[in-house]
């Protein structure tokens, strides 16, 4: 009897969450799909986005993500390997690094925006640019990415570590050929989380990559990201609702696409090396 009630409650929770999710998705799809077209994706916005398309915004978003990912993946993997493979248990510096990362992971993105503005735009003189925005996003996703990868490396079977060293292999070889490839699922999870956060980011980008909706010509140009565009359309532009929904739909499709890509690329790069039974 208790079992049945418990089961019913769990089912209700699942159904509720599923419905909410479907409702959000449904709303975006229903309201956005009619406006979404080939020319919407390939035209420049006209009249603050009420008409025309989102081509420059799509390009800016892609460029921002490219900067963020290509900076955070190598850096993040480096730090994760250091944390899990080269620190001793209870080492002060490592413990405080972990604590700092956990705190950083919980900081609201607008704080990253202010920091990015002060550091990248002003102090380093990069101005409002795609580069500043991408680097700011990199800072924002690094803490989660590092911690996820570290956890992944830690759960790798310790006997492989010992086995590799007992064969006279170097630590580098063990990490490169066995440990990192075995941690691929965790690395992908971290990457997917990070890309998701980065693609959906508004607050951190308004202060760093700006909201110019022209087609960017280089990484030093200012560029508007999709999420910023949605924010602008729904808050500041009357009559921009349809465009906002279509952009939101594009954003969702883009995130799904990125996730598949990330999975595919990591699998190609690392996962192909290991065979789990």
């Amino acid at each position: 009897m208790a079992d049945q009630i418990f089961k019913a409650v769990i089912l209700a929770c699942t159904a509720f969450i599923g419905l909410v999710f479907l409702w959000i998705l449904g709303e975006v799809v229903v309201k956005g799909i009619s406006h979404l077209s080939f020319s919407f994706l390939f035209d420049a916005p006209v009249n603050s986005g009420r008409a025309g398309g989102i081509a420059p915004i799509l390009v800016s978003t892609l460029m921002i993500i490219i900067v963020a990912v290509s900076v955070s993946v190598p850096l993040g993997l480096g730090v994760a390997v250091w944390l899990s493979e080269f620190t001793k248990q209870g080492q002060k510096f490592a413990t405080s690094t972990r604590l700092t990362l956990d705190v950083l992971a919980g900081i609201p993105s607008i704080v990253y925006g202010l920091f990015g503005n002060a550091f990248f735009c002003i102090y380093l003189g990069l101005g409002f640019s795609i580069l500043s925005g991408g680097l700011t996003l990199a800072c924002m996703i690094l803490p989660i990415f590092i911690r996820t990868c570290e956890m992944g490396l830690r759960t790798v079977n310790d006997s492989w570590r010992k086995g590799a060293l007992a064969l006279g292999m170097t630590r580098t070889a063990a990490i490169w050929h066995i440990l990192l490839p075995s941690a691929t699922p965790a690395i992908i999870a971290g990457l997917v989380l990070g890309i998701g956060r980065a693609t959906a980011e508004t607050a951190a980008l308004i202060f760093t990559s700006g909201y110019v909706d022209r087609m960017p010509e280089s990484f030093m140009d200012s560029g508007r990201a999709l999420a910023v565009h949605i924010y602008d359309l729904s808050m500041n532009v009357t009559g921009g609702d349809h465009a906002a929904y279509a952009t939101a739909l594009t954003l969702i499709i883009l995130i799904v696409f990125f996730n598949i890509m990330a999975q595919f690329m990591m699998d190609q790069w690392l996962g192909r090396k290991v065979l789990s039974s």
């Binding site: 006997s159 064969l167 006279g168 292999m169 050929h177 490839p181």
Partner: peptide, 26 residues
């Protein structure tokens, strides 16, 4: 040294690689 003094563990610990690469890698 560890190349000259090999070690076998209690729990078999083949790497998660192909049979071939397990020997090829070292």
């Amino acid at each position: 040294l560890r190349r000259r003094i090999g070690m076998i563990f209690q729990q078999p610990n083949p790497f998660p690689l192909s049979i071939w690469r397990n020997l090829d890698l070292p």
